[in-house]
Simulated assay, not measured.
Amino acid sequence: MPGQLDGKRILILATNGFEQSELEVPRDRLRDAGAAVDVASPKTGEIKGWDHKDWGRPVPVDKPLAEAREGDYDAIVLPGGQINPDLLRVNPQAIALIKAFYAAGKTVAAVCHAPWLLIEAGLVQGRRMTSYSSIKTDVINAGARWEDASVVTDNGVVTSRNPGDLEDFSNKIIEEVREGRHRRRAA
Results as ranks from 00 to 15, higher is better:
residue 62 D to G: 15
residue 54 D to V: 11
residue 145 R to L: 08
residue 97 L to H: 00
residue 3 G to Y: 07
residue 130 T to N: 06
residue 88 L to K: 12
residue 182 H to S: 12
residue 118 L to R: 00
residue 105 G to H: 03
residue 96 A to P: 03
residue 38 D to R: 02
residue 69 R to N: 01
residue 104 A to D: 13
residue 151 V to K: 01
residue 51 D to R: 11
residue 157 V to T: 14
residue 153 T to S: 14
residue 95 I to F: 12
residue 62 D to C: 03
residue 100 A to L: 10
residue 32 D to I: 02
residue 100 A to D: 15
residue 83 I to R: 04
residue 30 L to F: 03
residue 154 D to R: 02
residue 137 T to H: 07
residue 161 R to T: 13
residue 72 D to Q: 07
residue 62 D to Y: 00
residue 4 Q to F: 13
residue 8 K to H: 07
residue 97 L to N: 00
residue 54 D to W: 04
residue 161 R to C: 07
residue 164 G to V: 08
residue 114 A to R: 06
residue 167 E to Q: 11
residue 115 P to L: 05
residue 116 W to Q: 15
residue 25 V to F: 10
residue 159 T to A: 05
residue 35 A to C: 07
residue 123 L to H: 14
residue 152 V to N: 06
residue 13 L to F: 01
residue 123 L to G: 07
residue 41 S to I: 02
residue 77 V to Y: 00
residue 66 A to Y: 00
residue 152 V to G: 08
residue 88 L to W: 10
residue 179 E to C: 09
residue 130 T to R: 07
residue 150 S to H: 10
residue 134 S to C: 15
residue 19 E to G: 06
residue 36 A to C: 05
residue 29 R to F: 01
residue 43 K to I: 09
residue 100 A to V: 08
residue 143 G to W: 00
residue 72 D to C: 02
residue 118 L to N: 01
residue 83 I to K: 14
residue 23 L to H: 05
residue 113 H to G: 11
residue 30 L to T: 02
residue 37 V to N: 02
residue 150 S to V: 01
residue 114 A to W: 04
residue 141 N to F: 00
residue 71 G to N: 10
residue 45 G to F: 14
residue 17 G to I: 10
residue 33 A to W: 00
residue 43 K to C: 08
residue 146 W to G: 05
residue 95 I to C: 05
residue 181 R to L: 15
residue 49 G to A: 13
residue 5 L to D: 11
residue 145 R to G: 01
residue 161 R to Y: 06
residue 181 R to E: 15
residue 104 A to F: 06
residue 153 T to Y: 03
residue 20 Q to F: 12
residue 69 R to S: 09
residue 14 A to P: 11
residue 117 L to F: 05
residue 56 G to R: 04
residue 131 S to I: 02
residue 81 G to C: 12
residue 94 A to I: 13
residue 37 V to G: 00
residue 77 V to H: 08
residue 138 D to G: 05
residue 92 P to Y: 05
residue 49 G to H: 10
residue 147 E to A: 15
residue 87 L to D: 15
residue 74 D to L: 06
residue 171 N to Q: 13
residue 135 I to A: 06
residue 63 K to Y: 04
residue 95 I to E: 04
residue 26 P to H: 04
residue 34 G to F: 08
residue 162 N to W: 11
residue 185 R to V: 12
residue 44 T to L: 11
residue 166 L to D: 02
residue 50 W to D: 05
residue 12 I to R: 02
residue 79 P to G: 07
residue 166 L to S: 06
residue 149 A to N: 10
residue 45 G to N: 14
residue 128 R to A: 14
residue 89 R to A: 12
residue 128 R to L: 14
residue 55 W to N: 13
residue 8 K to I: 06
residue 161 R to S: 13
residue 185 R to D: 14
residue 62 D to F: 03
residue 147 E to V: 09
residue 130 T to Y: 04
residue 92 P to M: 12
residue 82 Q to V: 14
residue 123 L to E: 10
residue 120 E to P: 05
residue 37 V to Q: 06
residue 109 A to T: 09
residue 27 R to P: 03
